[in-house]
Nucleic acid binder design. Sequence first.
DNA 1: GCACACAGTTGAGGTTGTCAACGATTGAGC
DNA 2: GCTCAATCGTTGACAACCTCAACTGTGTGC
Lengths: 143, 143
Amino acid sequence: MGPLEGACEAWKLLLRVFAAERARLPAIAAELGLSEAQCLVLEHLDPAAPVLMCRLAETLDCDRSNITGIVGRLEARGLVERRPNASDRRVKNLVLTEAGRQQRRRLLDRLAEPPAGIRALRPEEQKTLQAILRRAFAADAGP
Amino acid sequence: MGPLEGACEAWKLLLRVFAAERARLPAIAAELGLSEAQCLVLEHLDPAAPVLMCRLAETLDCDRSNITGIVGRLEARGLVERRPNASDRRVKNLVLTEAGRQQRRRLLDRLAEPPAGIRALRPEEQKTLQAILRRAFAADAGP
DNA sequence: GCACACAGTTGAGGTTGTCAACGATTGAGC
DNA sequence: GCTCAATCGTTGACAACCTCAACTGTGTGC
């Protein structure tokens, strides 16, 4: 068996895990009273440092006007604040409110919960899985 | 290290792969001239047998009225046909047209392409990855 | 027959996403 | 200093997505 067929087979299995995970995010979002897109933005806000809207648009690979709408709704719910930036008056500093920080923490906690299948693996299998995934996607992780 | 921490660490890595994959789907969809939701529906249609709309709504976990719209647009593009069902006149048989079959094949081929990271693994690592994933999600796969 | 459940549709309303255009601001070159 | 291009966020128009409630046909159980 060549490496391509092995890769396809492994990828097919990963895609099945994706499909299951894809179904979980809307449920988590609804549970928190947010939309999926709002969750993605919340996830990329930094509790410790302000984030610029253009950086968000870049990270989420979408139009800036889209971010305007989503951040507007998050702000309406009191989770985020737009603040002026001292050194560049074109940009806005996005800062999480206290409620926003809590909501983001809840979201990350729910996302980080490993599914039962992963939890049921033996510790050495979990370590092997980590090692293989790290090796496969090392290029994304930097030095 | 307990099994929970190992599971969390492995899951965190998988989530990073998800994020990358999540970014790839809209690009593939745009490439085929479809929307993301239309791709998901196309993926769940069967080239060999008719599929009912209510089954689609169930599989994709959304409202039936949503399926009405998406299938309507797919039909407008000539990829799907609504046909009456002989034994139950309430339901519609969704059948792929020839163009729809081709488009679905293109979509599946693009989705099935394993990312470079997976392809770069050694064959024995790919086999190990397959084995672990299969063991983790065996419950979903049946006997 | 009749009440009830089910499949698909419709219309209203909110969210997401793109695009083009705009005002304000910045920075580079002259 | 001044002009000019680039950048940031916003707005408005428009299409798609998604849910909900209500409705029409249709099957099923009593």
